[in-house]
Design a binder for these strands. Structure first.
Lengths: 337, 337
DNA sequence: TCCTGGCACTCCGTGGTCTTAAGTGCTAAT
DNA sequence: ATTAGCACTTAAGACCACGGAGTGCCAGGA
């Protein structure tokens, strides 16, 4: 049904349409690509492709443009991820070297991705649930306030203030800190609740109130922050890519962290690329956009995802190459430090 | 030169243009506002206003629109800040109550401002330099790594990892922690460098390397983070307000933190409003925008600024009211907790 | 059986002309 | 100092004609 030449035609249509942003006709196609056949033949193939829903024409007597289904086929079978150029590789290194903490790594990554792909970049913070406790610190802030700082092996820090305590004793805090670290250090965050379950009961009476308060805040910070943090960059690029209509909706969707996280999708293997095209993604406002995302992490463990969102009419091979390269590089940095 | 009626005409022009987004002509003006004179008279006043540069016409035979200078006069002399409605006040309270830490306060504030003004909101994190040290914590992360956490009275937390140390001893860290807190607790961040100047020299030989490393990182974190953190929200609103052209430039400018901070301007008294109109602000891409900003802080001390950016053609009284109200409310929250 | 050249048809975009509506500036009268 | 009246300007919309790009289809050729 779809012989090789039809596929070649589809590929050519996608490539031309992506670069010119105009419906592509049979004649132009025959000229620009060496398909070895006449425009008339191409036209015949086109009607076949159109019947199968891979391409469409905006109106009679216009050229064809790929449909979501067409892009899907292109991505799955007709294209290969384009490796980055040397200059681009160097750009990644210079851009990301010298980042001191996790915040800065994430911030730079988002800029880098946006610049590399000239699209909107999204980077998710490494997930809490996939990491383990490095250290829990308690800091007395005053007679009835204590600050809890949770540090994970991925370098992430969560802080909370516990308020309305009565009579916080320096020694009580010291005791609790020790007990807490003994119980949780090295534990996966998932396992922390179980690990601290009976600490409150075991605590000496004078520490009981403090212990209970701190534990409840600790547990809360584990659950609540499951709504994870995401950073966005390169929105200015939206304006470039003929996004005049519906831009409002896109911007709106991009402001919702929940949406962004769902867009990045379920975590797969690190550096495995996911592409979601047009209406495949679940949000109204993003009907005209595609998302290319990849996981990153430490070693073979996926901690979070990153990606870009651009128009369905995007340079998939190039974008996929950039996303994959950045994900890999970040993973190597995280593993290294 | 500018009698009362001419001012009234200017005010009417600004108000009409802001609400309709179309050049306003003499006839419409005479109908919609009860100025008590005929269109012809208004026309005469208009040429006077135009000669003085307060209004302009896009082309012959079009209505007039205010110039930057016209808006400036309007803001300075012809308008009063509009207090919020009861519903809006309630919205502020419900929106901001229940924020647990500084991050959340800032995040919610930015959303609130964007929603209230239907424009782009900017909120700056409370400045480091205006606060004092609450506590410095050191956490050994491994044989040659230590994490430093700096906590300020405004609830802000800065963390840094110090790497490539050799042979970190638990007791050394304990000693340094104690010394450090003794020297810095309660100090203004500005004064910290002086306060720790000779700690390294005084340290026992075995702690010297550690002390020096930690101090250098501490000082660095004070200086470097002077490029302060800013949060942005409501960019989707850009699309609504006829910003089709130049939107690219605006988005680009808004992505640069440095730009945002400079836009917010120098800190004045808390809750003092600053308005920067059109070409008054220093950035090319923001020629068509105005910025309304105010300081906020604890008591009468300004810790940071917040504001909104919208088209020069904006509802100044309403926007100013919202910005002022939010700034005050945040200040009261910060002072209270 | 598959490819190709030719041809009639469709539709969009462009540019021209015309008309209308809104608004101005000027002048003369109040 | 204000107003009414009038001639003038301009943008925006409607309409039309036309050229170009592209299509679908058919008949002839490898």
């Amino acid at each position: 049904m779809l012989d090789d030449r039809k596929l070649a035609v589809l590929r050519a249509i996608v490539e031309d349409y992506v670069s010119t942003n105009e419906p592509v006709g049979s004649k132009a196609l025959a000229e620009r690509h060496s398909l070895g056949v006449s425009p008339a033949t191409i036209r015949n193939d086109m009607v076949a492709l159109e019947e199968d829903g891979y391409i469409a024409q905006p109106h009679t007597s216009a050229g064809r443009i790929p449909t979501d289904k067409g892009y899907r086929l292109f991505v799955d079978r007709l294209s290969t991820v384009k490796p980055l150029s040397g200059a681009e590789r160097r750009a990644i290194e210079t851009f990301l070297s010298g980042a001191v903490d996790l915040d800065e790594i994430v911030a730079r990554t988002v800029r880098l991705l946006a610049q590399l792909t000239r699209q909107v970049a999204i980077v998710q913070y490494p997930s809490l649930t996939r990491s383990y406790v490095q250290h829990v610190e308690l800091v007395p802030l005053g007679p009835n306030r204590v600050m809890m700082v949770l540090i994970t092996n991925t370098g992430r820090v969560e802080q909370r203030v516990i308020d309305h305590l009565e009579g916080v004793a320096e020694e009580g805090v010291d005791r609790l800190r020790q007990v807490l670290n003994q119980a949780t250090a090295g534990q996966w965050l998932n396992d922390v609740p179980a690990a601290v379950a009976d600490l409150a009961a075991q605590a000496p009476p004078e520490d009981r109130q403090l212990t209970a308060s701190v534990l409840s805040v600790l547990l809360e910070s584990l659950v609540e922050r499951h709504e994870e943090k995401v950073v966005l960059g390169g929105t200015a690029n939206l304006a470039r890519m003929g996004f005049t209509a519906g831009l409002r909706d896109v911007l709106e969707a991009l402001e919702e962290n929940v949406v962004l996280i769902r867009l990045l999708g379920e975590a797969g293997d690190p550096s495995m690329l996911t592409v979601s095209i047009g209406a495949e993604n679940p949000y109204e406002g993003l009907r005209g956009t595609s998302i290319v995302s990849a996981g990153y992490g430490m070693g073979d463990q996926t901690l979070a995802k990153l990606g870009v969102v651009g128009p369905t009419r995007m340079d998939y091979p190039g974008t996929m190459g950039a996303v994959r390269a950045v994900a890999r590089y970040i993973s190597s940095i995280l593993a290294g430090q």
